[in-house]
Design a protein around this nucleic acid. Structure first.
Lengths: 245, 245
DNA sequence: GCCCCGACATAACCTGGGTTAACGTAACCG
DNA sequence: CGGTTACGTTAACCCAGGTTATGTCGGGGC
């Protein structure tokens, strides 16, 4: 038993406090940690879908590969996220998942989720909240993709990452973030070409909205960047009332 | 008690069989049916989010209104769908929802869901499967929006509706569907301008991939249309194994 | 029968971002 | 320390789809 809560347990606690029994159930999900290296494939489209992953360390992403060779990145996962909830009702994976950097993951089977449904309505609600949150993130990404200009897309995505990281890392109000994505990956997230990502980055830089050095970004004025990207953080404000009874 | 199952109950049964008690729980969700007219707003962005809707009759859609006046339609709901699962973990609505045609809906509070979590792991799994399915639909729409041409987008959307309707209506293998959406709404679904929807419709028509009369569509060769839209129905193949134990 | 109105069609013109391709630059490696 | 490789930059050119504007058609009211 770890002296400090794992990031998964912390993620669950974000929604509601856990009973002793709940905590044991959650910790059981992390029984078999697995080291994975940057770029390694956690699963592939059409693989049988019988389990989920908890991401303990490192970043990951899910994507769809299209017939014409292009690729759409659907979601970027940070430590603490549960991967694969999407495919609970499917027998095949519909998306691939890869690590962005070295990290640690834990697999647990769909059946384990059914155990939780039976044993803890509290954890069930938390998991439902996580699914809800992921759907909302996806919704916002969809809007970002279809209705915003390249400049807005990039600004919005940076702000999303900035806010999500602030939450995980406990409010790093330092106006900076590490974004370990290549411009090619950003292009695949935002539905742009890598070339145009570069152009847009340069433009934001020249306007003084961001400052770049390697994979580190400085945001001199996050509010201005949020404005440039029509970023409204309400969609990240997920929470759950305390369990009644 | 209705002599025939309601479409909600049928939707639940699609995933797994229901015990007597389960069925009563589901039917309780439809206690207060409400007639609603075409175009009426079921909820608005920023409304307090304390309940869900079951859609018993008619079509509905959810959307986001952007600052610049444009609108993105996120999802089209058909009879039997549960609306609002997305916002379970939020206290505010993040999207508006409107009826496309006259219909019947039933509201039930978030708390009712917690009751279900406590009383029926079986129904819980079904609801989780529904959330999973919705996330997958959203994922596919996202890919459609960001990576496909206007022609592909329209063909894909028509095929999606064709297949979804086939499931609800019990395989209407008649190569036809009723699509009660104006071209303006289609534009807002597909991230196109109404003008270009018209152009694209005409093009598909001239190629003989579809045939139009009012809101009725004929698909002389669904397979060809699916091909034109890179439509792969795997993402609609949601199901759940029988409950074990 | 005439007017109105909303939904769709068609054409001319414009633009944001794609494409291609050449070039810089940094990290790594033998 | 020169070569390789991956990643980012910059510029020239192009096109899918947006915009604007005008026209058509069908249905409802009177």
């Amino acid at each position: 038993m770890p002296s400090k809560d794992s990031c998964i347990v912390r993620h669950f606690r974000h929604y509601r406090s856990l009973s002793e029994h709940d905590q044991q159930l959650v910790e059981a999900l992390e029984k078999s940690p697995l080291d994975v290296t940057a770029g390694s494939q956690l699963w592939e489209e059409r693989d049988p879908a019988n389990d989920f992953l908890t991401l303990s360390e490192g970043w990951a992403y899910s994507y769809r590969q299209l017939e014409d060779g292009s690729r759409q990145i659907l979601e970027v996962y940070l430590p603490g996220d549960v991967i694969g909830l999407r495919e609970y009702a499917f027998h095949q994976r519909l998306t691939g998942v890869r690590m962005i950097e070295d990290g640690v993951v834990c697999r647990f089977p769909h059946d384990r989720l059914d155990d939780i449904f039976r044993q803890s309505p509290n954890l069930t609600a938390i998991l439902f909240a996580m699914a809800s949150r992921q759907q909302v993130l996806l919704t916002e990404r969809l809007v970002n993709l279809s209705r915003r200009s390249a400049r807005q897309k990039l600004a919005h995505f940076i702000m999303e990452m900035y806010e999500r990281l602030a939450k995980t890392a406990g409010r790093q109000q330092d106006h900076a973030l590490r974004l370990p994505l290549s411009q090619e990956m950003l292009a695949d997230v935002l539905g742009l070409s890598p070339v145009h990502v570069s152009r847009t980055f340069t433009a934001l830089d020249e306007e003084g909205l961001i400052h770049r050095s390697r994979h580190r970004l400085l945001l001199p004025d996050p509010a201005a960047l949020a404005d440039a990207g029509q970023f409204d953080k309400r969609y990240l404000a997920d929470s759950l009332f305390a369990a009644h009874r």
